[in-house]
């Protein structure tokens, strides 16, 4: 059983079913990210785990104890808020000490923990300041420190970086990951930024419409998405309909698609006769001599730095191909091939 164990969790707001049925387990020291578009239920799930919401069904266990109906103030979780939620009338030191004083931790240990966190987050010179005297990055670190100092069983992050500028975000992101490893913290992190999720997490849980689409390591999500939603949400794969028209050898499948007949060999079996498949824009082989050869007219070309996006249209659908230094111009023809192991078979078509 994991450090955080969620079983059959259901959340209903009046007529609206936000989470129909969620089960997930997070191990000790693991960094799990909840990723999805806004309104997918990721924040609701985080609020259920932290105790600010009470589920309409299901159970939550933290460190083996059932906490489904335990209020947040007595739950062993610590939350890092998107708005930081620092107490504006208290100094940085008082903010950091707040939780320890609530838990009546002895003064000696309190000072020791405070010193450690202040040093680790480089907050020493700021300790006597009020939150509104700090920069955004410093406020963010105080919010992080206020959660860390509690040494909680699980630390929860609610889009903590969304109010920082891009450059600062990268630094703080690495800092969070380093501290999480140092303390061997169990962390649950909510974001809608896929690059943040891929860079930080041991596992990413993709949510859509209150359901879990897939939980897997970032690499697995990227290369072996299970659904077209995941394939599209992570890195914008080309998703298309296909019909299985036969097998070829042991694990090769022949598919009829809008791009013509394609052969897939990505190790999974098709779930039914009519399925969805995907391939990543960067997997194409530019020689055009291999299997799954496609020749098409390029409609749009867009330079992106280390690679160039090329777009073409087939069966009223736009596809994207990425090549390092293509010579082809818009309006000209391009031939490429896709290796069978790069074509991923997804869910059945409805």
């Amino acid at each position: 059983m994991g450090t955080v164990q969620v079983n059959g969790l259901q959340m209903r707001f009046g007529d609206f079913l936000a989470l129909p049925d969620i089960s997930v387990s997070v191990d000790e020291g693991e960094f799990v990210t909840l990723l999805g578009p806004s309104g997918c239920g990721k924040t609701t799930l985080l609020k259920l785990i932290s105790g600010f919401l009470k589920p309409t069904a299901g159970t939550i266990h933290i460190a083996g104890k059932e906490v489904t109906h335990v209020p947040p103030e007595t739950r062993d979780t610590a939350m890092c808020f998107q708005s930081y939620a620092l107490f504006p009338h208290l100094s940085v030191r008082e903010n950091l000490e707040f939780g320890l004083r609530q838990k009546r931790i002895a003064a000696a240990e309190r000072d020791q923990r405070l010193d450690r966190v202040a040093e680790q987050l480089k907050l020493g010179p700021q300790l006597e300041k009020l939150p509104n005297q700090l920069s955004g990055g410093q406020q963010q670190r105080v919010a992080l420190g206020r959660a860390l100092i509690m040494r909680p069983t699980v630390i929860l992050f609610d889009e903590p970086l969304s109010n920082l500028d891009a450059k600062l975000r990268d630094t703080v992101r690495m800092e969070i990951r380093r501290i999480q490893k140092d303390y061997n913290l169990t962390a649950i992190y909510v974001t809608h930024d896929q690059s943040e999720a891929l860079a930080l997490s041991d596992r990413v849980m993709i949510m859509n419409g209150g359901r879990i689409e897939q939980i897997a390591s970032p690499e697995e999500l990227y290369w072996s998405p299970r659904t077209s939603f995941v394939a599209d949400f992570i890195g914008g794969a080309n998703v298309l309909d296909a019909e299985v028209i036969g097998g070829k050898g042991e694990d090769h499948w022949v598919l009829s698609t809008p791009l013509g007949e394609l052969v897939a060999a990505s190790g999974t079996e098709p779930k039914s006769k009519k399925i969805k498949i995907c391939w990543r824009p960067e997997v194409v082989q530019p020689d055009g001599n291999g299997p799954n050869r496609i020749e098409t007219q390029i409609s749009e070309r867009s330079f992106q730095g280390s690679f160039t996006d090329l777009f073409f249209t087939a069966a009223e659908q736009t596809f994207r191909v990425q090549l390092p230094e293509p010579t082809v111009r818009s309006g000209e023809n391009l031939a490429f091939s896709i290796r069978p192991q790069d074509i991923v078979m997804l869910e059945s078509m409805q």
């Binding site: 600010f52 209020p71 947040p72 103030e73 610590a78 708005s83 620092l86 107490f87 707040f98």
Partner: peptide, 9 residues
């Protein structure tokens, strides 16, 4: 959020 943070702590 500020009140929630206090609860959480």
């Amino acid at each position: 959020d500020v009140l929630d943070a206090a609860r959480d702590l």
